[in-house]
Write a protein that binds this DNA or RNA. Structure first.
Lengths: 253, 253
DNA sequence: AAGTGGTCTAGACCACACA
DNA sequence: GTGTGGTCTAGACCACTTA
């Protein structure tokens, strides 16, 4: 038995709720995550082995393993067979998540704003029809918006949705993020395919985003699917590169 | 019991190897994945329930669940409680993986080439020192390379490594990707933090990447860590945006 | 009411790293 | 050899969806 294992404050895990709807593995992993992020458990610290943790918390090994696996997948912990589990040394940053830009900006404690430039119903071009899985020429919902934070315009967003969303109002779009509106209608985005690139700003983007003439924009093209795998949204977005970038943490399997 | 479940060809899973080193869940998930990608199992098709699959294959439910979970994480399958498991409708693309550009290009069936412009040992600037976790001013390995495919230069790469890698030769760098060299030395990259953005090309990039003057480049900044969580590589790269973009599939938890 | 995935248990054997 | 994580089993109960 190794004696240099980190032993975290007992209190951290003593009030697990076995009756409520929150899974035990999630209660453990989220508490462990905040302990790591706040530095209560230091980078490089070694955890006890899985069975010992299980005994300490009164949980079976698979449950403990699942909690640890969550944090391994987030890049906060590293497991090595024969060695043990350690807190990663490197800086900890947030994952790129499946949220809309509005929520990204919101959670970063800024004041997001939206302006709707166009919002109508129009026939689907071939590219749009293919992405959304509708027949070319059939009606789709189109919207073009700008997104600003603290008064500065950071992005221009063009989106296409299937016709069943034609009752979304312009006022709703100015108030909330698109994904928030969809969730309010019981539609949850589950999978998104994104392609990130760069190009010169178009004339209109130059004006709206206050970019120097011929300057660069960061672009993202996305198709999003709901829980049943049906395409819900196709969009291409242009971002002011000095105001926005994409951060990711990749974990190798 | 539902009778409209997809039943795949029995042969697909009848030769599971229980003696070899390949986990059963991996054998099942990889076969299922290729069956989906080749269209043997159609988009939208429904799978049998997990217990039935287990009986069919002679596996326990947790093992079957894990195999399915692998494909859910890749965005190929969707699971809904009370409903079942279905193949996603949308187009299937490949995940952004933790590989170097060299291997990305290689696997896309192109001929990658590398040219080393600079390769030396120099004192670490504050940014580099912070990223690699070394003391500012101490020696680090520096390299600047261009990467080409089919004779066209697509990227300019600047990288910094800890001093223990000072014996990597320029010739090695021209032959193989950096990550391949590191793996050959027993160093495996496990976690990487990336930041993707855009800016105007610098003068030298304009020439090397044959970009119009003042044109855009796609940039990536990365810190990579090994299995123990130690920083192994810091780099910032510039890509020709008409030749390269980043594709990702995001799956919401 | 029946069927599904979501969670959890209490064990077991194995491969790998290290002293 | 000892300790670790990696895999696997054979059950159990629950929550949710659909009929």
């Amino acid at each position: 038995m190794a004696n240099d294992d980190t032993v975290w404050p007992e209190e951290l895990f003593l009030d697990l709720d076995r009756t409520g709807p929150i899974p035990l593995y999630f209660q453990v992993s989220s508490r462990l995550e905040s302990a790591i992020r706040t530095g209560v458990i230091a980078p490089g610290a070694r955890l006890e082995n899985e069975i010992a943790i299980g005994q300490r918390l009164g949980l079976s090994r698979p449950t403990v393993r699942r909690a640890i696996q969550e944090l391994v997948d987030k890049g906060l912990l590293v497991r090595r067979r024969g060695i043990g589990t350690q807190v990663v040394q490197g800086t900890v940053t947030r994952q790129v998540e499946l949220t809309s830009l509005y929520e990204d900006l919101q959670s970063a404690h800024h004041e997001p704003g939206t302006h709707v430039i166009e919002h109508d119903i129009r026939p689907a071009t071939d590219v749009v029809a293919t992405s959304l899985g509708v027949t070319p020429g059939s009606d789709v919902v189109y919207m073009r918006r700008t997104r600003s934070t603290d008064g500065v315009t950071v992005a221009m967003l063009e989106n296409y949705l299937p016709p069943e969303f034609s009752d979304i109002t312009t006022a709703q779009l100015e108030e909330r993020g698109l994904y928030q509106i969809l969730r309010g209608r019981g539609v949850t985005i589950r999978i998104a395919q994104q392609k990130i690139g760069a190009r010169r700003a178009h004339k209109e983007e130059t004006e709206l985003l206050e970019i120097d003439k011929g300057g660069p924009v960061l672009t993202m093209e996305r198709v999003a699917f709901d829980s049943s795998g049906r395409a819900i949204e196709y969009g291409h977005h242009a971002y002011r590169p000095d105001m926005y970038s994409f951060e990711t943490t990749l974990v190798a399997k």
